Simulated assay, not measured.
Amino acid sequence: MTPFALLYSLHVLAAVIWVGGMFFAWMILRPAAVSELQPPERLRLWAEVFRRFFQWVWLAVLVLPISGIGLWHLRFDNLAAAPRYVHVMAGLYLVMLALFLRIQLLQLPRLKRAIAAQNWPEGGATLGGIRRLVGINLLLGIVVVALASARPLL
């Protein structure tokens, strides 16, 4: 396997894990949890889901820029020579990273505190905020995937 193929494969897998996980959480798990679980159980479930999923997101957050910069250097003479869609994808990654860090560092601890205090209204409000940020990140991730998929046409 060539270095380009290895980096490209790692890059795509990291994106699939992150964006696919958000799609599953938003479109499948969330509606099922709302219809089947009461707020205390639902909040505990989400805290555990985030704990497990965010371990994979951290891996993706590290692999994406390393593999992306590697691909950038292998494919283009310099960073400025890359097509506009590559710059857009890199910029969207930074926005997605900022939203993920906001969830991980600010919102998730607040959710855990609300669960520990059995403050279900506060936990629900916090989970709603997390849901909105994940929804924004999911839309951004879909745009990045669409750009990457359309690149032969750009």
Rank of each mutant, 00 (worst) to 15 (best):
R51W: 04
R51V: 00
R51Q: 00
R51G: 01
R52I: 04
F54C: 01
F54W: 04
Q55W: 13
W56Y: 11
V57Q: 07
V57L: 06
L59I: 12
A60N: 10
A60R: 09
V61W: 10
L62G: 15
V63D: 03
V63N: 07
V63K: 04
V63W: 00
P65W: 01
P65L: 03
P65A: 00
I66R: 02
I66K: 01
S67R: 05
S67K: 06
S67L: 05
G68L: 14
I69V: 15
G70T: 04
L71K: 10
W72K: 06
H73V: 10
H73F: 13
H73T: 11
H73L: 13
H73C: 08
L74W: 09
R75D: 11
F76T: 06
D77G: 15
N78E: 12
N78Y: 07
N78I: 05
N78L: 05
N78V: 04
L79V: 11
L79F: 14
L79N: 08
A80T: 13
A82V: 05
A82Y: 10
R84G: 03
Y85N: 10
Y85L: 10
H87T: 03
H87C: 04
H87P: 08
A90I: 14
G91N: 11
Y93M: 02
Y93K: 03
Y93P: 07
V95D: 07
V95L: 14
V95N: 08
V95M: 06
M96R: 08
M96S: 14
L97R: 01
A98T: 04
A98H: 02
L99Q: 00
F100A: 03
L101T: 05
L101H: 00
L101C: 05
R102T: 06
R102N: 13
I103K: 00
I103A: 00
I103M: 05
Q104W: 14
L105E: 03
L105P: 00
L106V: 09
Q107E: 14
Q107V: 05
L108Q: 12
P109Y: 06
R110K: 15
R110M: 11
R110G: 10
L111T: 08
K112N: 09
K112G: 02
R113S: 14
R113V: 08
A114M: 04
